[in-house]
């Protein structure tokens, strides 16, 4: 489980305090939706969970390990993160390489990389763009590619910041079913940062509202 213990966080430049003595627990084998108004701190919470932002006080513990002492690579092995803006996480020259990037770093055998990457490209309807430059895709396609690239790594927890943005109803349903499969099949703990009440009520078993 991910335990957020008495966390305080203030943005240093704006001096805006987002959290003060905030605690919450996210379980494995559960989909939790985090909702709240604009500026309430949903994205800040998601960035704290993966170590992009570090709390001023308190601790974040993932399966017994305090992430305060871990670098981003070590945290990434436990938690996959999909940014709100997919442009900020696509940096490879082709769609295939984007999905295969983390798998190469994990030093998997080439045939396994090929198999996994092709599977996730097909799952998200991106096979036809295999050799395309990610920057040329539409917003929805980029969103799907970002999800595919993170899901391929098979982390125990997933933090998805507004994953339904740019997805049509059919793709949203497919994403929801995929997340449900990850939860039930692999016991993955999924944290959805979302504005969509419909999506969260359909797929999340727990809902957290961050008040401003």
């Amino acid at each position: 489980m991910i335990e957020v213990n008495n966390v305080a966080f203030t943005y240093p430049h704006t001096k805006k305090q987002i959290f003060s003595n905030y605690s919450i627990v996210f379980e494995r084998n559960e989909i939790t939706a985090v909702t709240g108004n604009n500026g309430a701190g949903k994205t800040t919470l998601s960035k704290l969970l993966v170590g992009i932002l570090r709390p001023d006080a308190g601790s974040i513990v993932i399966d017994g390990a305090d992430i305060g002492r871990m670098d981003l690579c070590a945290i990434g092995k436990k938690v996959g993160y999909v940014f709100q803006n997919p442009d900020r996480q696509l940096f490879n020259d082709t769609v295939y390489n984007e999905v295969a990037f983390g798998l190469y770093i994990m030093k998997l055998p080439n045939d396994e990389i090929e198999q996994k990457a092709s599977h996730y490209l097909s799952l998200f309807g991106l096979t036809q763009y295999r050799d395309a430059f990610p920057g040329k895709l539409s917003h929805g396609e980029k969103q799907r590619l970002a999800l595919a690239a993170v899901l391929a790594l098979g982390a125990d927890y997933l933090v998805l910041d507004e994953p339904t943005t740019g997805l049509d109803i059919r793709r949203q349903r497919e994403l929801g079913n995929l997340l449900e499969n990850l939860r039930s099949g692999h016991g993955c703990g999924i944290i959805l940062i979302t504005h969509s009440n419909e999506f969260s009520s359909c797929y999340a078993s727990k809902r957290v509202v961050i008040a401003q």
């Binding site: 993966v50 992009i52 670098d71 990434g76 993160y81 996480q89 940096f91 983390g102 994990m106 690239a149």
Partner: peptide, 12 residues
């Protein structure tokens, strides 16, 4: 953000 995304996907 791009740097963090790459590191979270294992780039040392």
């Amino acid at each position: 953000d791009v740097l963090c995304a790459a590191q979270l996907r294992g780039l040392q």
